[in-house]
């Protein structure tokens, strides 16, 4: 499989502070990726560098095998829907769609019109007069109808209600199935999108913490609940992500997979197991102290 994106040792620093440091990953063709992490982790900076909108301080970026900077053959295949996208003062929604048609070779105008209607977009209205949700919907329509081989959505749902978000996920899956492409979804609403994703990149404090298939992640940790003393003996020697206690009852989230035998033995001692969702796992991984985090990623 050919790599659509290949990033090696990517670094971006502002003076002494590093926004992104030493990030390396590859994205394969026609997969849906989740670029996850807390606000300010460096996700948006990475996406800006991938699309040559910001300059890297170090490292190497290849998109479709070439450097993206001022590279027309790369950029015409890329559609980046930014949360902070600016629009010209006088532009109407229709103007945005018209210009998108000129810039994206795979643009499907009929599909764009259908999407705009589905999201209830007033196409004659000025973009500057749109609500936050409607503004997000403009991005969603452009991102889907562009059918760009590399489509990047940065927090595409801001201001969208649950119904509109579900519509976005529906349309994304539907159109992706018919027109496969590489999609990067950057978000912190992890629970909502985790099932859409095939692979996850987790960025934390400018570093790549996880680069893993979603299926592998769902078995990466588990939570065990029971009497405090038994929990402590069960988790000794294991990588504990978090431990909570309430009276005599304790719960611990443990990194790794419990063997069937371990589970049986623990169940006999009255311990209960529960799965850890992707969102919970990421909260555990990114909500911790620096030293602990380094222990996990090593």
């Amino acid at each position: 499989m050919s790599a659509v994106v290949k990033v090696t040792n990517l670094t971006k620093s502002y003076g002494d502070t590093a926004a992104v440091s030493g990030v390396s990953f590859e994205l394969e063709e026609n997969k849906i990726y989740g670029l996850l992490g807390r606000n300010g982790a460096g996700k948006t900076t990475i996406m800006h560098m991938l699309t040559a909108q910001q300059f890297a301080s170090g490292g190497n970026i290849e998109v479709f095998g070439e450097e993206p900077y001022e590279n027309e053959s790369v950029l015409r295949r890329v559609c980046f829907i930014k949360e902070s996208q600016k629009y010209p003062q006088m532009f109407t929604v229709k103007d945005v769609l018209d210009v998108s048609a000129l810039l994206h070779p795979n643009w499907d105008a009929a599909y764009a019109a259908e999407l705009a209607e589905a999201f209830g977009l007033p196409t004659k209205r000025k973009v500057h007069k749109l609500s936050r949700g409607m503004l997000s919907a403009v991005g969603v329509v452009v991102g889907l109808a562009s059918r760009a081989p590399l489509t990047i959505f940065d927090e595409p749902y801001l201001g969208l209600d649950a119904v509109a978000r579900a519509l976005f996920y529906d349309r994304l899956l539907e159109d992706y199935a018919e027109h496969p492409r590489t999609v990067i979804l950057s978000t912190h609403l992890i629970d909502e999108v985790s099932r859409l994703l095939e692979h996850v990149l987790l960025i934390d404090q400018g570093r790549l913490l996880l680069d893993q298939d979603v299926e592998r992640l769902s078995g990466m940790a588990y939570t065990v609940v029971g009497s405090a003393a038994r929990i402590d003996s069960f988790v000794s020697g294991k990588k504990v992500l978090s431990r909570d206690a309430m009276g005599a009852i304790a719960s611990a989230t443990v990194m790794g997979e419990a063997s069937p035998q371990e589970r049986r033995e623990a169940a006999e001692r009255g311990l209960e197991f529960s799965p850890v969702s992707l969102q919970q796992l990421i909260v555990h991984l990114t909500g911790r102290q620096k030293e602990e985090r380094e222990a996990v990623s090593s």
């Binding site: 909108q53 590279n71 950029l75 890329v78 010209p88 210009v99 810039l103």
Partner: peptide, 14 residues
């Protein structure tokens, strides 16, 4: 008015 919009829409600076 137009530069950030155009760069954001995958247009080269040149």
């Amino acid at each position: 008015n137009t530069l950030p919009f155009m760069i954001g829409f995958s247009v080269r600076r040149s």
